[in-house]
Amino acid sequence: MTELWQFAWDALVAPFAEFAFMRRALVATLALAVSAAPLGVFLTLRRMSLLGDALTHAVLPGVAVGFMLFGLSLPAMALGGVVAGLLVAAVAGVVSRATALKEDASLAAMYLLALAVGVMLISRQGSQLDLLHILFGSALGVDEPGLLLVAGVASVSLLTLAAFYRGFVLESFDPLFLAAASASKGSRPWVWQQLFLMLVVVNLVAGFQTLGTLMAVGLMMLPAVSARLWHESLPAQLLNASAQAAIAGVAGLLISYHQDTPSGPTIIGCAGVLYVLSLLVSPGGWLPQLLKRPHRVA
């Protein structure tokens, strides 16, 4: 029993107890879990799941410009990422309204262009290591400014979700009713969508140092999609998504520490394992649905 306890301590607790960088990575990952995963649930409700992927690529040129001007300065890269993400979303909306292209098509074209430009800028100014760090992140390398950024974004996101929860729910389930109600009060209904997109962008930017610009969307979407398989009610989905993201974050950090694997992809891989388990055993998954099917009588 003593040996089992010692093994559990060394494997699960000692890395966080002994090393400050592990504790910073843990706090940053948990903050992203409770902040980004609920936004993923709203994205799935709006059938905009791929929007998060598009926006996480769209922030790259802004991050690259911040890197070119100020080096590995987190505030500069974060500000550039926010501006670039919002600009790409706005331009895609303008293109869809001014041309025959739908918004998803224009957004796909914009984010591919943004990804290419961002990679070229970083490759021209920095080293291969800088490019890999920005694209795939390093949760184990989160410093105090990065931790403050993630914690601040998570706090603002949770407070905003709590304050405007009813509006976000209405905009997801019945946008026509929200538009009519907003018009009667003299406000503009598109404000809700822009506010929501801003939350998505700042969360993706907050996650780029921990998970990288390519991986940040994984902690937002994979737990959210899994949560829909477990619950029908929205509050339960929000809690489940945050819990799955937190579990994936902790497991990914431990595996990354013990096996010396990249932390960002490892965390997303753990979220993927939870997603596969949800596909198999959740109430909306394959096995329960298979058992519900009526058996043919010979």
Rank of each mutant, 00 (worst) to 15 (best):
M1E: 10
A8K: 12
W9Q: 13
D10Q: 05
M22N: 05
A28P: 07
P38Y: 06
L39G: 09
V41L: 03
L43M: 14
T44R: 14
R47F: 05
L51N: 13
A54P: 07
L55K: 13
L55S: 05
A58N: 00
M68P: 07
L72Q: 15
S73Q: 10
S73G: 09
S73D: 15
V83G: 08
V95Y: 10
R97P: 02
A100T: 11
E103H: 03
E103T: 14
A108E: 03
Y111M: 06
A116G: 15
L121F: 06
G126D: 00
S127R: 01
L149I: 09
V150H: 01
A154Q: 11
L158T: 00
L161H: 07
F164P: 08
G167D: 12
F168A: 01
L178K: 04
L178T: 03
S182W: 14
S187E: 11
N203R: 08
F208M: 01
T210W: 00
M220P: 14
M220E: 07
A227H: 07
R228Y: 11
E232L: 08
L234C: 10
L234G: 03
P235L: 01
I247G: 05
A248N: 03
L253N: 02
S278A: 13
L287G: 04
L291F: 09
P294K: 00
